[in-house]
Design a protein around this nucleic acid. Sequence first.
DNA 1: CTTACCGCCTGTCGGC
DNA 2: TGCCGACAGGCGGTAA
Length: 270
Amino acid sequence: MPELPEVETTRRGIAPQIEAQRLVCVQVRQPLLRWPVSPEILALKDQVVGAVARRGKYLLLHLESGGSLLLHLGMSGTLRLLPADHPPSRHDHLDLIFANGTCLRFNDPRRFGACLWAADWRTHPLLRSLGPEPLEPEFSDTYLFERSRTKRVPVKQFIMNSQVVVGVGNIYANESLFLAGIHPGTLAGKLSRIRYARLSEAIRTVLQQAITQGGTTLKDFVNSDGKPGYFSQELQVYGRAGQPCKRCNQPLKETRQGQRTTVYCPKCQR
DNA sequence: CTTACCGCCTGTCGGC
DNA sequence: TGCCGACAGGCGGTAA
């Protein structure tokens, strides 16, 4: 599922191929995604792409003449680089066609993804109130500790809240809490500063390692070359309920928090 | 303000 | 074999 490492893997794959390229046109086969594809995007043509950036789980294609395309992969979305004449297949909802014959193709079976226009991405409603990037210095143990003081939600839900920190979805929340040795049900406001230091470090470590491995492929995710990511092999708890903890051999437990599956080690995580 | 829950969407899987 | 419900889940929206 595309969380921050999968989106970053995609960004690194597409950036060298489309930065400074001329976008010739946008072909939409299915405009009904999470939100309808913005009319401004349907009308785009002859625009040069500037930087390809990422904010949380959003990809930003900045155009040199101003404004940005926002792409979100939702749950099942992928972006692939293909020759423009490559025949489309099921769930290939839109193509960005470039002057050099390259096509950036968005495929998304579940259609939870999005392709939107932002005149100014900084003030766009979907981006405006996002929390800090977990791999940037603003995301610190002090920041997490202070933001958590008034919160009575379990710490797992706290770190999955994109207004607190972006990019941490269910897989990496489970993995980070295991690495930090923190029980996912602990109330966010009750966790000590020391434990937030361990947690923020664990989040950075897990995300960075996952990026290095090219993301996590459970079923669907592929990078812009159509290749899977290899972090699945490193998962300590996600998808391993009932199996022995890799640290202490105790069987891992599964619960549900906020309609999400949580897996943890009852011995290593307190 | 906070927290809890719904629903969007398709593919897959287990149970009967 | 086929049908049906549950589940996967990011995240905005709404209700309490």
